[in-house]
Amino acid sequence: MAERQPILEFENVTVSFAGTPALDDISFLVREGDSRIILGAAGSGKSVLMKTALGLIKPDSGRVKVFGDDTSNLSERQWFAVRRKLGVLFQEGGLFDSLTIEENVAYPLENNRVNKPSAREIHERARKALEFVELGGTLDKVPSELSGGMRRRVGIARAMVTNPVLTLYDSPTAGLDPITSYTIVALIAKERRVHNTTTMIATHRYQDGHFLANYTYNDATGRIEPVNRDGGDAGTRFWVLRSGRFAFRGSQSELEQTDDPYVRNFMKPRTDSDGKQI
């Protein structure tokens, strides 16, 4: 089998804020089609890792390679060309609150200076992306008119409208109720499957990772189904970050067998007031 194309590589990347390292000597390689679930407590470096991958934060030392190319010496303008192939969902959605939902989703297409699609195509693609996240009827609304979960879904539509090779989701379910969280994670699974996107998800919820490692979207039936255990999820790996360093890297079964109390903490079943697992 031919080796899959490298998508994102960190080589000994360190990022510090006011002398405190947020990422401490991090190295990894993500190849085409991989899924990475990055678990970690608040302040463990998940968002910083995402932003460093996008070139929004420059590393103090080490190298970030995107699609095999070193990005160390890229100017902000050169980064724009790289970022066109990356999709991102920010922690709070990052929607422009003065633009309509359609304008928000169309934004990456409108601002594509290299080959900007026609106005008709932009409208059509934005509409399709919104229909993908089941928000086809919200084109003329503004973000403040939507619920938190809906805004997150618009964020997913905006992240996928350019058909990115790699999509980064920064805490896609943070602050959402379990049902809405399920909808969001199911959409991520659907996006990953339909567009064959390499996916990185930073989250503090083990359930999100468990779902993405074990379930997939079936194009034929249009449903979420368990993956074929005979190798269907070979590309899904878990990383656990602690104070800017990897506390764990491996498969779900390896994760479940680890003795590290910090790592195990993420897998503790959470129960609601009736004692039911959530």
Partner: peptide, 17 residues
């Protein structure tokens, strides 16, 4: 407000200076 709601980062990530 745009900065704290990550709209500035989103702008950069979506190809606008």
């Amino acid at each position: 407000s745009m900065k704290v709601t990550e709209q500035i980062d989103a702008m950069r990530a979506l190809g606008t200076d």
